[in-house]
Every structure is written in structure tokens, then in C-alpha cells.
Design a binder for these strands. Sequence first.
RNA 1: GCGCCUGUAGCUCAGCUGGAUAGAGUAACUGGCUUCGAACCAGUUGGUCGGGAGUUCGAAUCUCUCCAGGCGCGCCA
Length: 570
Amino acid sequence: MNLKHILDQQISQVLSEISGDPTCQAIVNHSKSAQFGDYQANGVMALAKRLRLNPKELAEKVNNKLELSEFAETIDIAGPGFINISISKDFLTKQLNLLDKDQLVKKSNDKQIVVIDYSSPNLAKEMHVGHLRGTIIGDAIARTFEWMGYRLIRQNHFGDWGTQFGMLITYMFEQGGATTKLSNLETFYRAAKKRFDDDADFAAKARENVVKLQSGDEQCLQLWKSFIDISILHCQELYKKLNITLTENDVVPESFYNDKLAGIIETLDKQGLLTESDGARCVFLDEFKNKEGDMLPTIVQKSDGGYLYATTDLAGIEYRCQTLHANRVLYVVDARQGLHFQQVFNVAKLAGLADEKCSLEHLSYGTMMGKDGKPFKTRSGDTIKLIDLIEEGIQRAYTLVESKNPDLSKAEKQRIANVVGISAIKYADLSKNRNSDYIFDWDSMLSFEGNTAPYLLYAFARIRSIFKRAQLDADAEYKICIESPEEKVLALKLLQFTEVVEALLLDCYPNQLCLYLYELAGNFMSFYEACPVLKSEGEVMQSRLGLCQLAALTLNQGLSLLGIETLDKM
RNA sequence: GCGCCUGUAGCUCAGCUGGAUAGAGUAACUGGCUUCGAACCAGUUGGUCGGGAGUUCGAAUCUCUCCAGGCGCGCCA
């Protein structure tokens, strides 16, 4: 159940009854501090002002009409007109005992189709830390929609088409077509780029090969395909290491849209949206006009007839809306492409490529910065390879496991180090608001203390350890009965999992889920210190075991939505 | 030039449709392991929310302006 939502509805309704205006908002939120109860309604003051009433008197009036005895222990009117609600232990006890442990959150029964576009690596380039964010954030969002019962379709918009592939193909010819040289993609790419920059003949040949490739030359196509196979293999390896759910089947590359691009231009043309400007074909939209009246074009076809990024994305929208029948299309892409997506979305709607009801959303994320606050680059001008970050993370975790738990077997330490290292990297990214730029720093990304994934994993491992030590069944039925303050705080937090997951589906900010899990783990730690489980007896012990069980289930599920595995021992 | 984003504690960041005394982690300091795992817990110190003006019962949040940084703006993706 979504307690916040229920309280909001009930209080909003009372406000509406009193005012006669059905749109009244109770604005229920979690209370900021324990002295203000568990939930607070802030909407009374705004309404009082509109009705020119004394807010405190209105709050009293609302309170008299409210029927919240099922939920509330106390309802207080405080300050200028806040309604503070303290949830009763009886209610928490009842709800937690009723909770479906297999579900935890009631699944959505609207069968919306959600398409999510994320990761989007490039052909013949190794993935670097810049790819990390979109991949991790997109995966968390995808997992959440899927778990909540939506029909979710992943699209890995693989960058496999463009002029730079003529360069690679030409270099491949020079090297005698030895595919083994591709094993190090980055080196190969750089070598090809160097030849392209240094040698005019090479560059000319490269341009020729682009044309050949585009006109379907067999030999070029074959070489190109070998690049794709190797690149995808490389990405899948990383996905596996990072526990990312994308598979080969989710790859729908740019080239997939090649034969649809002419049709897109035709559609735009038929609707009279195209304007020729300096030989290029553009769509000019009023909403992208500046104060001086200058029009910002969305270029869809170059003067040489070639198509562009925008054209491919329009084809992508058409495919996702018309063929996949998406209700929502989510693009997890760097914030720098904000304008591009705004343009493409508007053109698509106007041209009817996407129907009115389909929601096109750019879930943008910030740019990676260096420690100096400037855009990130290493001294050599390269980016840090993703694989190096991962290996460093695992290595550091291994060292830590060895110092904490030297008696474990080597294989066990390695397994733990893998989970701890990877989870620390993912959580460091997921726990920040995706919108803001972020600073790349080895130490903060690979930290294992404080608000990090290992903290959550540690809380989980402690719980498992209780059951193991006492040889109790972690899946048995335990009857919960809330008594102490620490139990109540934990109980309420457990009940709020629904609120967080449902909010995630609306705005797609995984850092909200991270925050929730961190607080849940913290509430558990406080409970653990204050309320001994195995030294208690009878019903109290049963109840505390029940709380431990639910805390473990919720932590495990929440982390799983973030793409983070848990450990029984660490 | 136009537009978008960012500016919160020494550092890294939260802060939800405007709400009460702006919160965490980290660093520094204090206390807690013969007691369910100290990768932990309890506590102390630390902030003119970039500056200024405005809107209002109330502003980190909305508006304007200035400053600083980042990004994007016709044939790359």
C-alpha cells in the first residue's frame, strides 16, 4: 500500500468538501523531524489563504472531519496550520503482518508498453567511464519497470554507422584483413585515425569506402560486420561484469534504420514540413525561434543527400511508436543532447510519427568532470577505460576483504570482492541526482564506507548472519508486533518501499531509491544496536525476526532494482 | 550573440508539486567490541544555501538582475 498516497487522497477530499473546490491539494509529505510526527499535510495554509480564513481554525475544522483512526495514533495541528500525523503501532503491526512477502509492492495492472533506450556504445571503440552513467541508470530504470509489471522493451541504440567506418575498413584492408588485430579495438581505432589524419591518399580511399559501404559493397559489408560482432562481444562482456541486463537481442543499431530514412523524408515532405536551406533539407519550428526571429533548423538531410542523426532518431521514434506500440519512450542520454531531443520529439509529434498520447522523455544525465571541475580528461587526453575502473574496484575490494576476513577461502574472497567492487561503482553513480554534472574521482567512486553500496550489503549480511547463527528459517512466518521506538521507525520505513518504487516510475530518479535504501539500512542498524534479536524471547523475538526478515527482503529487492547483488557473508 | 544546466559545511552530495530549527557521507574530535559481524553505532564541531532585489503568512526552491563554471546552437553522432 502507498500510505502517503492514501493520506493525501483522504485529506485532499476533506479540503475539497470544505471548500467546494474539487482540486484541493493536501500536499502530504514525510515529516521533516520526529517531533512533527510521521507525515505532515501542508495544503491547509494555502487553502486558508484562498478562502480568507484563519489557517489554524481551518486545520481544526479539517481535523474534525478527518477519519484517520485506522492509521493514526495522533493528529496534531501545529505551527501556522500544519497537520501532523503520527502513524500508530497497531496499524504498522497489522500492515506488516499482511504484507505479501513474494511481492512487497503491489504490481501495476495497466499493461503499458515502455521502451527504454540506454547505453548506446559505439562500434570499434572501447567503452569508457563516460558510458557508465547512462548504462547503469538506464538499467536500474528498466529493471524497475519490468518488476512492476510493465511490458518493457530495451533498445541498445548501437552506433554502428557513420563516415568513420570507411577509415576503419580501409585500415583493415591495409592490414590484410586480420581480424585478430581487432582484439584491441582502441589501438586499432587510433592507428586507423592516425593513418587517416597523416595520409591524404588513405583519407581519400576511406571516403570511397564509405560510399561503397553505403551502396552495399559485399567486401566492405563483410568487414563492417566483423567489426560489429567484435564490438558487441566486447560490450556484452562488460555488461556481464557489471550485471547489466542488456543482451545481444536488445541491440537495435543505427544501421537498422538505414532503409527507413528515405521514407521519413518523404513523410515530412508530404506534410509540407521541409524547407530547403543552403542545399540541406530542414524542418523549422516556431518554438525554436529566438527573439530576433532567427529560426533554428532541424536538419534531416545534408546537401549531398546523406542523412543525419536527427533522421535516424525520427525513424527510431516511428519504429518505437508504430511497430513496438510504445506508450512511453525513455531516452537515457547525456544532457548535452537536450536540444537535439527537444527538436526531434517536436518534429516527430508534428509529423505524426509519434501519436499524441505517446510520451517521449529525455532522461538526461550530467557531464563527467575532472577533479578540477572542468570536463574530464586524463593527462594524455584519453578517457579512463571502463574495464580498468572495474578491475581497480574489484582489486581494492579484494584487499579490504582480505584485511577484514582473512580466513575465507581465496575463491570466496574473490566472489565477495567482485560484488563489493562492482556495487560500489554502480551505487556511487546511482546515488547522485542524474541531472547534475558529476566529478570523476577514483576514491569517491571506489569508497566502501558511509553511504555506499557496501554499507547496504553489510546491513543485509548482518541480518542473514542472525538467521544463520541461530539456525532459523529465513523464509518462515514470523508474527510482527511493534513495540519500541526503533522498531516503529524501521517498520514505517519498510512500509514506505511502495511509495519510493512508484515515484521512481514517474520521474525516473534512481537516487531516490538509493536514499531510501540507505535510510532503511540505517534504521536497521539503529534497531540492531537497540533491540537484541537472539537474546530476546518469545513473541518479542518472533517479532524482531519478522522485522529482520522484511528488512532483508526489502534491501535485497531494492538493491536488485539497482542492479546490485547481495551477499550472505562479506 | 542566443539558449539550456549548475553554484548548498573543508571535500562529495541530498533537499520531492514553496513549508516549521537547511540534512547525509567524508574529514577532525569524543565515547562504545569477553554482549546477534566495529565495512558498525552514539555524539561534538562545521553553512551569509554564489551576490543583490522582488513575489508571500512562509523562499535553497518561484521571478528579475549581476557574478562564476559547464554545455549546446546548419549539413558529426
